[in-house]
Design a protein around this nucleic acid. Structure first.
Lengths: 163, 163
DNA sequence: GAGTGGTCTAGACCACTCC
DNA sequence: GAGTGGTCTAGACCACTCT
């Protein structure tokens, strides 16, 4: 049934999800147009309604489709940001892989920014910025070390909100 | 059954969700402690497993609990503490503030790691790691510059999964 | 009314974690 | 092994939207 393998290590809903996501990204289902309805997907992929519904929920979470009550499930406009937010979503990435994500802040301080940082933040070199050092963990195992520079007014707002 | 009304306009999962959320906020289930398991909740509220599982999924989406595989479902620290430690998600932060988050990857390369990075990732100095440079934006305005170091095998997995 | 998704049940078998 | 959640099925009835 349409490239679905019941013996795959991947759950059925993930296989259908990948198939539909691919079709959407390929443009087989254009933005604004409806996905096939649940009954059609059930038959097309040979899985149960529960499985199809889990697939759809995941596509919604990924921002690829939305449901309109009583009307159907529709493909959303691609967000230019999406491909990158996926990468930046450490939390989501880890959860997808079945890990428990967390993070530890090692340091927060105000420092003059380097030329590189200045260029990318649209500041002058040497302007004070907030620097945060952080370790991200999955199941308490350190995965990444992270240095973040924030423009100062925003960084301070973040720190405030934190308290 | 514990204040659940099958004839309510509210779906059962929403009623159970409200009950559990209340217990969590009241401190009846303290942060770090486990929720009753699915079987117990099924009996306590007199609903099916599907319903309980939908309830839990919603609590997860609300950031109140997390599931640890094979162990159980645990109450998380209240959100404010969480912002910077648990859920350091830029994406979530910005959405809370009503901004449209995105990110731009400037560079991805494999480099020998510094002593600092090595220490935090539990590696030897000089081991090859994946370095990612990224600018994060809110409403297309650059907010932060970001340098991330990933242990190599994981970094490459991330790059693959990126599709 | 016909078509859509929303909610719900009662089962089943599997994978992971801890002992 | 026992206990946890993860996946999946095959049904059922309901609420919404459009015509």
């Amino acid at each position: 049934m349409e490239g679905i393998d019941p013996d795959s290590a991947l759950p059925l809903y993930a296989q259908v999800e990948a198939a539909l996501a691919t079709s959407i990204c390929d443009g087989k289902f254009a933005p604004g147009s409806p996905l096939p309805n649940e009954t059609a997907l059930i038959q097309q992929y040979g899985v149960s309604r529960t499985t199809i519904r889990q697939t759809i929920q995941n596509l919604i979470r990924r921002g690829l489709v939305e449901i309109r009550r009583g009307k159907g499930t529709f493909v959303l406009e691609p967000k230019i940001t999406q491909e990158f937010t996926e990468l930046s979503g450490f939390v989501e990435d880890m959860r997808v892989l079945g890990h428990r994500p967390s993070a530890r802040v090692l340091d927060r301080s105000v420092v003059p920014c380097s030329e590189t940082v200045a260029r990318h933040l649209g500041l002058a070199t040497g302007v004070k910025v907030v620097r945060i050092h952080r370790v991200r963990l999955a199941n308490d195992v350190p995965i990444s070390f992270d240095e973040t520079y924030l423009a100062r007014e925003i960084g301070e707002k973040v720190i405030e909100n934190d308290l």
